[in-house]
Structure formats: structure tokens, C-alpha cells
Design a protein around this nucleic acid. Structure first.
Lengths: 233, 233
DNA sequence: ATAGGCTTTTGACCTAGGTCAATGCCCCGC
DNA sequence: GCGGGGCATTGACCTAGGTCAAAAGCCTAT
């Protein structure tokens, strides 16, 4: 892997825990890799041989039943960490939702390096705790929220995640953005069917809370009202 | 806190990462505490001032909406770790499902100690990664499984968790046990109503896969068949 | 033993969201 | 500009699970 200095996520990925010379050592172990939309990086149930940092793009973590039902159990944005360090097979698959760029390591090499660098492990722990909190919030959504509450929550979540990812550190969130997934995938994140997703989106559009200029684009026109729905109050 | 040597979870809690003298130092920071069923240790949304190890008993982590819907987002067994180290308010409440005993620390004291002990942090990281995997499996359940699949999964999960907790290291899981929760709480874990839980349990009983000698007790009579349902195959 | 207050079960009915089937829309290559 | 292959939307209908209400168990205290 070449130059961490110019890395887009240098200051936000777990690498930010490292001093320049340590960073150099880690860099030798990894390499940048392009991933195209739809490409799978890790298969569900396989031994997890790689871990990675996301530099650009969005990926999904997903689980399927034997009879083909799918649930997306995580959506990963730039600066997020991918993978299951320290042994274990991966209980979910990792697939690119958009074209993406990742900084990839073999698990063995990464594990070894992490053991020697407590600061890195500390950052990883904080990140994992945050992921866990997010997963639990999503459990509430999947267990107890209605379809419209789910859709509102997803739109706001994506707006926030894309916002805090974007270059300008000013934006706390975006009021206009492209969805990094299609309707089927929205359904798979929300535990809904594609038809229900579509119907709820048109409802929000008709209520003038959002606009949908094209398939992918979303404009949030009334964040306040959308938040009220999302909170399930 | 007095004597870690006689602690029931000495070898399974994160403390097992520590050498005897380190353990002594940690012990000085914490104390054992009894918690009675229904008692809340941490409130949802409060700053998380304590962390703890569970010694005996079972506790729930739960999230509620403004209008009173509740979702249980985690169930914690002996040797499990409770709390949100390193800042942040707790995004969920922690309440005892049964009478319990915990080994409790102020977050500040624990954080300080953890920073000095990479091995402890490593164990905590592994545990958090496991929790995250479990949470994601549960997201699949909440998003995509039917009521009977959910019930079957829960019964097997409790059987396994209680089994690996129990004294005899021989038992991989138990075929007979007391549920550490009532019907309402089962519903809150599974994203179902109390009536649906009850109906599905009687179905499993009528199909002779389980027996229910009294309110709390469960006997697994046909694990194979129950597993088939749980897998959603 | 008996009354009262629980949790749980059962029954009858309803509805949010799923299913199935068109239809529409957009993009791209010709 | 025209045709075809995907996605997305819309409509008509169905069902798993929710809701509401009533019984049935069960503990505990008297």
C-alpha cells in the first residue's frame, strides 16, 4: 500500500491511533484494492481471512437463511472497519453496494500487528462498541417499529452517515443525497418487502416530507417531521 | 470486593486475562452487589457511570420508544460484561430478569485500569466482537424469521447459554431448564406480543417438541426438530 | 379452604404488511 | 426514434400476527 499521507480517511479510520512510523509498518502489511458494485469480499460462513478499512464507497454485511431470505445486518461507510479479527469464521457476508475502495489486510498479519499496538486495539474496541450500539438501535427498529417509522429512520441515518463522511467537516448531515442502495436492499436492511418500501416512500413524498427526483436521489424537505416519525413518538 | 479466588466466574469473565496481582488491584476498585429481580442498574439514556461483570443471574438490556413499545436488545448471563466503557451515555437500560449478583465498578475507575492493561482490553474486545455477532444474528431473527422460528431459536439459545454457564463443564446445553423471563419478556426479546408467544409455545407443545411442566420450566423433547425450525430452512 | 390478584392461555376479530400480477418508467444500444 | 431489459410503482387480494376481551390457572395471604 502506498501513501497513507494522502489517504482520504487517514484521520478517521482506526489508523489515526498510530504514530507516523507505526503507520508505515502497518501500511507494509496492507494494500489498497478497488471493489466493484455487487462484488463480494467475504462470504457468509467462510473463515474470515481478511480485514479492511473502507476508504470510499458503501458495503453491506448480510445474513441469509437456507431458504433464501436475506437480512442486511450492517452498512459500512468510509473510515469504517470491516471484518472479524482474532479468529472465527465470518457470520455474515460482505458485499459492495457501490463501487468502493478498501485498504485490505490478511487477518493473520493484522492480528499480529494489533497485538503489539494497544492503542490500535483501543480504537478498534471503541469502534466495535459503537457498532454494537448501532446494531442494538436497529434491533429496536426491526422488532418494534412500523414500516413508515423504519423508512424515516433509514433516510435520516443515511443522511447522517453520509454527512459525517463527506469532506466538508461543516455538514452535520445532508439534506440531499444519493441512496447507496436500491429498493430491494432498503427492504433487506429494514426487514420489509420492496413493495412496502416503495409505498412508504411515495407516502412520504405525498406528505411533502421528501422529494425523489430520480431512483437514487433523495431530498429531505422537512427534517423535523421526518425525525418525529423516526423517533416513533 | 473480597475474594476473586472463589469467584464463580473467575475463569470465564474478562478478569481471566489478568495475573493474580493485577486481579488484586482490579478487585480493590470494585465490589460485589446483589440485585433483585426487576431492579434497574442503569437507565436508558443516563450517563453510564458503572460497568460490571455478572456473577450470577440474568439481566436484560432494553430500549423503549416514547410511546412505550419496548425491545430487549440483549440478555446477559453469568460471566458476561455489562456496560459501556469509555464515555458515552448508555443507549439502553440494564434491568435484572432474575435475582442476580454482579461485580460492579465505576466507569471512571474501570476505564483508567483498562487503559493500563492491554490484555484486559483485548479480552473485552473479543467479547464485544462476540456480542456484536450475536446482535447481528438477532437482527436476522427480528427482520426475517416467523413467529415459530423465533420461539424455537430463543429456546435453543437459552438452553445453550445456560448450559455453557452451568458448573459442570460437560454439558454443552441443557434439555431442561427454567426460563429466566416471563412471557411478556420473551415477546420483548422476539419482537412479538405475549399472545403470539403463548400460542406458538402451545403449538410446539402439541407437536411434542417441548414440554412445559409449569410457567417457567421448559423441557426440550426433540432438539433436532426444534433446530430445524430455528434454522429457518 | 378461600378470596384476590397475578400471569397465561384461548377465542374472535382486525389490520399492517406480504404476495402476486400488471403497468409504468428509464436508460441504453441500435 | 425505437425496442428491450431492468428497476420501481401501483393495484387487488390474502394472511400472519396484532388487538381486545374473556376464561383459566397459580400463587399468596388470610
Amino acid at each position: 500500500m502506498s501513501n497513507c499521507d494522502t489517504c482520504l480517511v487517514r484521520n478517521r479510520a482506526i489508523c489515526s491511533a498510530l504514530a507516523p512510523e507505526e503507520l508505515g509498518a502497518l501500511a507494509k502489511l496492507g494494500r489498497k484494492q478497488m471493489v466493484t458494485r455487487g462484488q463480494t469480499l467475504v462470504w457468509e460462513g467462510d473463515e474470515a481471512l481478511v480485514v479492511a478499512n473502507v476508504i470510499q464507497g458503501v458495503l453491506k454485511l448480510s445474513v441469509s437463511t437456507a431458504d433464501g431470505r436475506e437480512q442486511i445486518v450492517g452498512v459500512v461507510f468510509p473510515s469504517d472497519f470491516i471484518g472479524r479479527p482474532f479468529g472465527k469464521e465470518s457470520p455474515y457476508g460482505v458485499t459492495a453496494l457501490t463501487d468502493a475502495e478498501v485498504c485490505i489486510f490478511t487477518r493473520a498479519a493484522f492480528d499480529g500487528f494489533a497485538k503489539e499496538h494497544p492503542d490500535l486495539q483501543h480504537r478498534l474496541l471503541e469502534r466495535t462498541l459503537d457498532e454494537l450500539d448501532r446494531a442494538r438501535q436497529w434491533m429496536m427498529l426491526l422488532g418494534r417499529k412500523t414500516a413508515s417509522e423504519r423508512i424515516a429512520t433509514l433516510l435520516l441515518e443515511i443522511s447522517n452517515r453520509l454527512g459525517s463522511t463527506s469532506c466538508s467537516a461543516i455538514t452535520p448531515f445532508l439534506d440531499e443525497f444519493d441512496l447507496p442502495m436500491d429498493r430491494q436492499q432498503m427492504g433487506d436492511v429494514l426487514g420489509l418487502t420492496i413493495e412496502t418500501v416503495s409505498r412508504q416512500l411515495t407516502k412520504l413524498k405525498e406528505a411533502d416530507m421528501i422529494a425523489l427526483p430520480d431512483r437514487r436521489r433523495v431530498v429531505i424537505k422537512d427534517r423535523r417531521r421526518l425525525e418525529n416519525i423516526a423517533l416513533a413518538a
